[in-house]
Design a protein around this nucleic acid. Structure first.
Lengths: 219, 219
DNA sequence: TGTACATCAGTGAACGCGCGTTCACTGATGTAC
DNA sequence: TGTACATCAGTGAACGCGCGTTCACTGATGTAC
């Protein structure tokens, strides 16, 4: 049966979205043009009306995902003025994003996607670098306002921040979704925060972390 | 030219090692039986004299890698009695392992390897679980000896520990080896340690209060 | 307003390629006698 | 000790499969007149 005739802009978007969904559902190795076409409701060769090659489809998919990821930086910045709260907010957004779309960690890891193609590898690197730059900026703000220890290296803290999520994503995948990513993120965050934060020895907030953990546990 | 005739035990080992080297050098997608055979100095069909299928080769490769990884737990335990130093030692060994053999993170991430095969996925999960159990044991020892805060969840700390390395491995790969994994590991370790460690053991009031909270935490 | 035509998205058959795998055959090695 | 034979690792040709890609063709849509 012949599919409805739609404009290239619409199809390009549909194809990129279908690719993302497929990666989330089946993994990177399930990402064939045939599977993408089936999901969109087209025949494999129809993809070539809208993209020149599979490589172009991958590039578009990476752009889609990168935009979503980087958008979270702006959302977190708009949420609260306090840098530590911004980091916490960003962490929660990131967890929500990978729970909603498992494609994120798969893209980052899978060299199947940018195997031989140096340009595509660079594209992924650029997105991650920008993401980390945003995180490092939050850390610097926290140092400027005296909330975060000045001896912490902001760039290293940004890489470490990614580490609060990456292992969870791997375990989530390995256990077929049985691993509690949200809970792990909160617990890792507690340790991470305790490692960054300046605690005023004079302040009564010494028991601060235990209290805040309790509060945070209530839904 | 005809290759030397060697026993199956020798060839099995050679093949598994060649597979590991290939993954480290070319990535998981470069892992074809043809490439493995070339590296060993055999013809592709000769692999079938020693393994029944490519799946069996992958299983053997995973076993090889898992043994190396888990062996580091024993080495770290033998290195020093202090749990925090053990964790630090383990981190350094892990960094050395992935620097020497990039196959480690690639194996853990790549669903190309255990795509449809539930058994193989379970095998990888089992190795990582055992690794984390060992890390969690170090954390518990630290809590028992009063070096690590009792309100820290050992299992969550173990997952977090993996996060000290995973993002570095990704960045190392994305930047073609230009990212300084060792330095990042040390800096992330500082923050991680600061988040776990009991800074002032001479404050018994605080420690006792925290402990009593933890007692009523969960079964 | 209707008509003719250019444009362009969708189709199905066909391709070349690399892959894992099979198989009949070769020839070296170890062993029973 | 030498000889015959079973065992077993290595070989190269061939296979079926899924993949990305090409191409001539179809038919709908928008536009110029």
């Amino acid at each position: 049966m012949r599919a409805e005739k739609l404009s290239t802009e619409v199809r390009q978007d549909q194809i990129a979205r279908a690719a993302l969904q497929l990666i989330a559902a089946e993994g990177v190795q399930g990402l064939s043009l045939a599977a993408i076409a089936r999901r969109v409701g087209l025949v494999p060769s129809a993809i070539y009306r809208h993209y020149r090659s599979k490589g172009e489809v991958l590039d578009a998919t990476i752009d889609h995902l990168g935009a979503r990821l980087l958008h979270n930086l702006d959302l977190a910045a708009g949420e609260t003025p306090d840098p530590l709260d911004r980091l916490h907010d960003l962490l929660k957004r990131h967890v929500a994003l990978i729970r909603e779309n498992q494609a994120v960690p798969r893209f980052i890891f899978s060299e199947t996607i940018y195997g031989r193609d140096a340009g595509r590898k660079e594209k992924v690197r650029s997105i991650i670098t920008r993401y980390m730059k945003g995180i490092a900026a939050f850390v610097r703000e926290g140092q400027a306002s005296g909330r975060i220890r000045p001896d912490v290296d902001p760039d290293a803290a940004a890489v470490h921040f990614l580490g609060l999520i990456l292992p969870s994503a791997v375990l989530w995948h390995l256990t077929d979704g049985r691993f509690d990513v949200t809970r792990q993120a909160e617990r890792a965050w507690s340790t991470y925060r305790a490692g960054l934060e300046i605690v005023d020895p004079a302040a009564p907030g010494r028991a601060r972390r235990v209290r805040s953990r309790r509060d945070g546990r209530k839904p």
